[in-house]
Amino acid sequence: MPRQFERNTRGHDYVVGDLHGHFELLEQALDDVNFRPDRDRLFSVGDLIDRGPQSMRCLELVHEPWFNAVCGNHESMAQRALLEDQWGLWLLNGGDWSQQFETDELRQRLSDAIQKMPLAMEIDTVHGPVGIVHAEPPADWANIGEAPHELLLWSRQRVESRTVTPIANITAVVVGHTPVTAPLMLGNVRNIDLGSFFSGRICMERLDDIAAMV
């Protein structure tokens, strides 16, 4: 089951695309919307780490009370490297920043963060519930609990095929993972990964606005 969040009645709920270690881009985006951590919340589509200069600082955002993130494929690669000693794939995909840390320290800090990063989240908005997964949701949100990890963390099929069939039993779903030049709406699925590690841009949008697009 996805992690559930009640409607925010005190402030605004935002969602941000893949950060990939670019903490300074996030800081600027938060300033641009006059983000108030005492009343606003920020949700993330995952891939907080790798390829950028401040991966650890981005990863540890999950310990902030105003920040929530789903697990991305880069967090999954890091987990397999540190817990299953499968380093090759992670190091080839931006995990070289890990060499700055002692392995035991890195393993503990990653483990502490991953525990707070579910594979899916669902947030209530004034226009209905909005789901968040890293890569791609199942065709029916009611089946999110049984969806393969490969689909949720790695799939690009919906974006690459430009599928517009709506996901059933959810108002909208927000994903990242596959870089696009501008936020892309396919049916009721919103892709907001702007490829921060090569574009120098991230996308931050209000969840209410995304739900209202459907």
Results as ranks from 00 to 15, higher is better:
residue 2 P to M: 08
residue 3 R to I: 07
residue 7 R to D: 00
residue 11 G to T: 04
residue 11 G to S: 10
residue 13 D to G: 01
residue 14 Y to L: 02
residue 14 Y to E: 04
residue 16 V to M: 05
residue 16 V to N: 05
residue 19 L to D: 03
residue 20 H to R: 09
residue 22 H to R: 03
residue 23 F to A: 12
residue 24 E to D: 14
residue 24 E to V: 06
residue 27 E to S: 05
residue 30 L to V: 04
residue 30 L to W: 12
residue 30 L to E: 00
residue 31 D to L: 06
residue 35 F to Q: 04
residue 36 R to V: 05
residue 36 R to D: 15
residue 43 F to H: 03
residue 46 G to A: 09
residue 46 G to F: 12
residue 51 R to A: 04
residue 52 G to K: 04
residue 53 P to S: 06
residue 53 P to H: 07
residue 55 S to A: 11
residue 56 M to Q: 08
residue 57 R to T: 13
residue 60 E to I: 11
residue 62 V to A: 12
residue 63 H to K: 09
residue 67 F to M: 10
residue 67 F to L: 09
residue 67 F to Y: 15
residue 70 V to C: 06
residue 71 C to V: 05
residue 71 C to M: 15
residue 72 G to P: 07
residue 72 G to V: 08
residue 79 Q to E: 15
residue 81 A to L: 11
residue 81 A to Q: 02
residue 82 L to W: 07
residue 84 E to M: 13
residue 84 E to P: 01
residue 86 Q to I: 14
residue 88 G to N: 12
residue 88 G to R: 09
residue 89 L to D: 14
residue 92 L to F: 08
residue 94 G to L: 02
residue 97 W to F: 15
residue 97 W to N: 03
residue 99 Q to K: 10
residue 101 F to C: 05
residue 102 E to T: 07
residue 106 L to E: 04
residue 107 R to S: 05
residue 108 Q to M: 13
residue 109 R to E: 07
residue 110 L to S: 10
residue 112 D to A: 14
residue 116 K to R: 14
residue 120 A to M: 06
residue 121 M to P: 03
residue 124 D to L: 15
residue 126 V to W: 03
residue 128 G to M: 13
residue 129 P to S: 09
residue 130 V to C: 10
residue 131 G to D: 12
residue 134 H to D: 06
residue 136 E to M: 15
residue 137 P to F: 05
residue 139 A to G: 11
residue 140 D to L: 13
residue 143 N to I: 00
residue 143 N to V: 00
residue 144 I to P: 06
residue 144 I to E: 12
residue 145 G to A: 14
residue 148 P to A: 14
residue 149 H to L: 11
residue 151 L to I: 09
residue 153 L to G: 02
residue 153 L to D: 10
residue 155 S to G: 03
residue 155 S to D: 14
residue 156 R to L: 10
residue 159 V to M: 13
residue 159 V to T: 08
residue 162 R to L: 13
residue 163 T to P: 01
residue 166 P to E: 07
residue 167 I to W: 01
residue 167 I to F: 02
residue 168 A to C: 12
residue 172 A to V: 03
residue 173 V to Q: 08
residue 176 G to C: 02
residue 176 G to P: 00
residue 177 H to R: 11
residue 178 T to M: 13
residue 184 L to Q: 14
residue 185 M to D: 11
residue 189 V to T: 12
residue 190 R to G: 06
residue 190 R to S: 07
residue 191 N to L: 10
residue 192 I to M: 04
residue 197 F to A: 14
residue 198 F to Y: 12
residue 200 G to H: 08
residue 202 I to L: 04
residue 203 C to I: 02
residue 205 E to W: 00
residue 206 R to M: 05
residue 209 D to Q: 11
residue 210 I to L: 01
residue 210 I to S: 00
residue 211 A to D: 01
